[in-house]
């Protein structure tokens, strides 16, 4: 056993990279759920974003364009879900699961010509001065732009939800769609926009996997990241900043677990990998028993079908 082999600077730095895909997927789903919709299709949208972004980058040579296309592809796929749940009034749980199945099939079909290719690398942002700060520099300021964009999106989501009118409407729709409708808000439109945002974020998260973190395309490469993103939202009790904390925790456990293994520490890997989920359940219980339902932040209308009569 040699714990000194673990370099905390590098551990923290790679934790930020490992957390970014689930952070993006999670923040998108948070907005979706805030609007009162439960979309279990994150995995399907993520993997579609992964291949769309990868293919676009290979074809154009530009990772930036790749990320953009990934977001568009994720959003486009989510519109299928929006159509089903908002217009055909289908059950959200079943539609989300079907979306995942569809996305997995679609992505592997799209990806058949892209196996074994190498994408042009996404340049790292070496922020002058800041990146030279000892410890903090390498941990925080030597990453690719998407790491910062991810954090910026979390900040923007938090500010929008908390301070803007858009955020207010979104929350109103999520809390009580009938009342929101009576107030003249376009419930369906708001929800479709939220679903689209969720799809775009999931697409970005997927592309981060195929363009930066791995970087390559392999069928089924998200390997459950979309499901973790779903768990994150719950863990965060629907608060944007906590999604970030959760993403670092979930991503961190994986990185830490590998680090401990490499350092020769005998750890029961399966039992350690269970821990984030068990922690999530405990958090859920504490939140729901503690200060009453309101503190939980779970949108009251979540998962319910809205149909305006009148």
């Amino acid at each position: 056993m040699d714990l000194s082999a673990i370099n905390p600077v590098l551990l923290l730095a790679s934790l930020m990279v490992a957390a970014t895909p689930i952070l993006l997927g999670g923040i998108g789903e948070l907005v979706v759920e805030k609007s009162g919709v439960l979309n279990l299709g994150v995995e399907g949208m993520m993997i579609t974003g992964a291949i769309a972004g990868f293919a676009a980058t290979i074809e154009t040579g530009s990772p930036a364009l790749g990320f953009l296309i990934a977001a568009v592809a994720g959003a486009a796929l989510s519109m299928l879900f929006a159509l089903l749940t908002q217009y055909a009034l289908a059950n959200q749980v079943a539609s989300g699961l079907a979306l995942t199945l569809f996305g997995l099939g679609l992505s592997s079909l799209m990806g058949q010509g892209y196996v074994g290719l190498k994408p042009p690398s996404t340049p790292k942002l070496d922020i002058p001065l800041l990146s030279d700060i000892p410890f903090l520099g390498p941990v925080l300021f030597q990453h690719d732009p998407m790491v910062y964009i991810g954090i910026a999106i979390v900040a923007a989501t938090w500010a929008t939800l908390k301070y803007s009118r858009v955020g207010l409407v979104l929350r109103a729709v999520g809390e009580n769609h009938d009342a929101a409708h009576a107030l003249g808000y376009k419930v369906r439109l708001v929800r479709c926009a939220a679903i689209g945002f969720g799809g775009a974020m999931a697409g970005l998260g997927g592309a981060y996997l195929s363009l930066v973190r791995v970087p390559q395309w392999t069928e089924g490469m998200t390997a459950g990241a979309g499901w973790i993103a779903l768990a994150l939202v719950v863990f965060a009790s629907w608060k944007p900043w906590r999604v970030m904390v959760g993403a670092y925790l979930f991503g961190g456990i994986t990185v830490l677990q590998l680090n401990l293994q490499a350092a020769g520490v005998k750890i029961p890997v399966e039992y350690l990998s269970m821990s984030p989920y068990i922690i999530t359940i405990i958090v859920l219980v504490i939140m729901s028993s503690g200060r009453g339902k309101a503190a939980l932040g779970a949108p009251a209308s979540m998962g319910r079908i809205f149909h305006a009569t009148g």
Binding site: L80, L83, L84, A88, A90, N91, A94, S95, A98, L99, L101, F102, G103, L104, G105, L106, S107, S108, L109, Q112, E219
Partner: peptide, 16 residues
């Protein structure tokens, strides 16, 4: 993959 996509479609249509 085509089969998987096909199943996805079937589910979508059934739900819709």
């Amino acid at each position: 993959a085509a089969i998987q996509l096909f199943q996805g479609m079937l589910l979508f249509f059934l739900l819709a």
